[in-house]
Design a binder for these strands. Structure first.
Lengths: 97, 97
DNA sequence: TTCGTAGTTCGTAAAACTACGAACAAAAAT
DNA sequence: ATTTTTGTTCGTAGTTTTACGAACTACGAA
């Protein structure tokens, strides 16, 4: 046990990978990649989960920084956070070669 | 709640992302990408975790199919499983564009 | 046969994840 | 003022993850 060679980049990559580590969240990210933004209700109509569960998944993606929500009453418009999404992309692409 | 558009590919991508969702496992994958194979003992020397904990992380990567272990007594030689690793790479790259 | 090496499995405990319905909040519409 | 719409937060329950040390397996060496 000399030393940990786990870098900050490893930790970041792991956080992003973890945020992507659920089928619902993969779906949301894919959906947002295909059509730049969407409303939570769009997803509720499609996905077979309770809206509270969806809200939790959106929160996790927000916490990881991958998406952002803009209030557009009476709804909330979710989009990819391109800056952070690109960071995640680069870290994971780099890891995967 | 019309229909789930979560595909089998989404589920696979999520499984791979989840397997990568821990700094120790990112480190192991990075390590194996840099030097084709390694022994568990090499990792025990570097990482500040108990060998049983390391064994669990290796098991998760094995369960996801990303790595494989070949017995080479008295040790076990871990390598990337390139076929599955490539599948993970393609799924995640595709997701990330 | 006994000892040492390399690694897995077991048992345990704490934390995090997943999911749901109910309750709530904020603003627009009636 | 009440209702409707959209979505979040709360409370709860069951499952999974993470981590550790101890015990175990398998083999080679002394």
């Amino acid at each position: 046990m000399e030393q940990s060679f786990i870098t900050e980049e490893d930790k970041k990559a792991a956080r992003y990978a973890k945020a992507l580590g659920h089928p619902v969240r993969i779906f949301i990210i894919r959906h947002l990649s295909e059509q730049s933004c969407c409303y939570s209700g769009d997803l509720t109509d499609i996905l077979p989960i309770a809206k509270s569960t969806l809200s939790q998944h959106l929160k996790e993606l927000k916490n990881a920084g991958l998406i952002q929500g803009e209030i557009e009453l009476p709804r909330i418009r979710y989009c990819l956070n391109n800056e952070i999404f690109n960071e995640a992309k680069n870290l994971l692409k780099n890891l995967l070669e």
